[in-house]
């Protein structure tokens, strides 16, 4: 049913958040904040789906519910100012890196107040001024740009690193090879994060990839690679933080593959013909990243039923407000359609 084999992971499963957070130097508030951000992402995605169902969205979307731990573990581990290039399933990465959900929801609804002033939509959200170089509609699109961003950072002797997040599907594009090889020969400060949610549209990873895990491919270029449990938020945090340090130290690229699972269909329409209901249910109940972290926090007495409800209510309000903001925002003016084609 599933390719989930925990014994193959390079991380140890987090069983005690107090021990683990001490080891990682994370404060208790930060742990709760991680939980809160995961909830926020989940609610944003559910709201996006609802907006779509209501017929308010002209366009497409790719939702990341189920993959929150990858986004949050990563968002908390990287440093402000580092570059981000992610892929079409990018809402969670943006939220975890501190993006404004009002501007995201407005972009999703095509409004002038959105991150791209309604020109890009869900698949092309970017905040270039915050070094967020954008989600990409071309599978593998971020991989090629990352090589150049890494090169520029290196040439200008900056401290930053480049984080590029892509799916398992992108690993089979030709550019995957070219980008990794180039980064390796030039020791570019790139953190490759393969968010392996086990499917590229309807294609199961094992069916379309000759050899997994993909970290073995990184090894072919002499790039250190790790295969981790992407639904264990502290494991993601730990490995991304270490990988980022490594990339920043001038030792060249690092590759992290985080195994996770997508709950919604691939995009707006998907009848899930390529996977079973049992499989989806298993992930939603047993492996859900939010439930898993919540249990650990409860055991450690860092949260209780009351504070959980409070967090959910607060985040729900934030997301509701984003919809209100987006709805009350103006449409772009049609006479500006030719703006920004050239600088």
């Amino acid at each position: 049913m599933t390719t989930w084999k925990k014994e193959e992971f390079d991380n140890f499963e987090t069983t005690d958040v107090l021990v683990k957070s001490k080891e990682l130097g994370l404060k208790q508030e930060q742990l709760v904040d991680m939980y809160r951000t995961m909830v926020k992402i989940r609610l944003f995605e559910e709201m996006a789906d609802k907006q779509y169902a209501l017929g308010k969205v002209h366009g497409t979307m790719h939702l990341s519910a189920g993959q929150e731990a990858v986004a949050v573990g990563t968002g908390f581990a990287i440093t402000k100012g580092d570059y981000l290039l992610n892929h079409h399933r990018g809402h969670g990465h943006f939220i975890a890196s501190g993006a404004d959900v009002n501007k995201m929801m407005a972009e999703f609804l095509g409004k002038e107040t959105g991150y791209c002033r309604g020109r890009g939509g869900s698949m092309h959200i970017a905040d270039v001024t915050a070094n967020n170089l954008g989600a990409n509609g071309i599978v593998g699109g971020g991989l090629q740009l990352a090589a150049g961003v890494g090169l520029a950072v290196q040439m200008k002797k900056k401290e930053q690193i480049v984080l590029t997040i892509f799916g398992d599907g992108a690993a089979n594009e030709g550019i995957f090879h070219e980008s990794l090889n180039m980064a390796a020969i030039w020791d570019l400060p790139i953190l490759y994060l393969c968010e392996n949610n086990q499917y590229g549209m309807s294609a199961n990873v094992a069916r379309v990839s000759a050899k997994t895990p993909f970290k073995d491919r990184a090894a072919a270029y002499g790039i250190p690679g790790y295969y981790i449990d992407g639904n264990d938020v502290l494991a993601v945090y730990e490995f991304i933080r270490n990988a980022a340090e490594n990339a920043r130290s001038g030792k060249g690229p690092v590759f992290v593959e985080a195994q996770t699972y997508r709950y919604f269909g691939h995009s707006k329409s998907d009848r899930n013909l390529y996977r079973t209901k049992e499989e989806i249910d298993y992930w939603k109940s047993v492996e859900d990243p939010i439930i898993r972290f919540e249990k650990l926090l409860l055991t450690a007495n860092l949260i209780n039923d009351q504070s959980i409800s409070k967090i959910k209510e607060e985040m729900s309000e934030v997301i509701d407000e984003s919809v209100t903001f987006a709805e009350n925002s103006p449409e772009p003016d049609v006479k500006d359609v030719m703006e920004w084609v050239y600088a």
């Binding site: 002209h58 791209c116 309604g118 020109r119 772009p332 049609v334 500006d336 359609v337 030719m338 084609v341």
Partner: peptide, 13 residues
């Protein structure tokens, strides 16, 4: 078509 990338917003599109 105008010499512009296709915009997302339905009216611009």
């Amino acid at each position: 078509g105008k010499d512009v990338p296709i915009p997302y917003n339905r009216f611009l599109e």
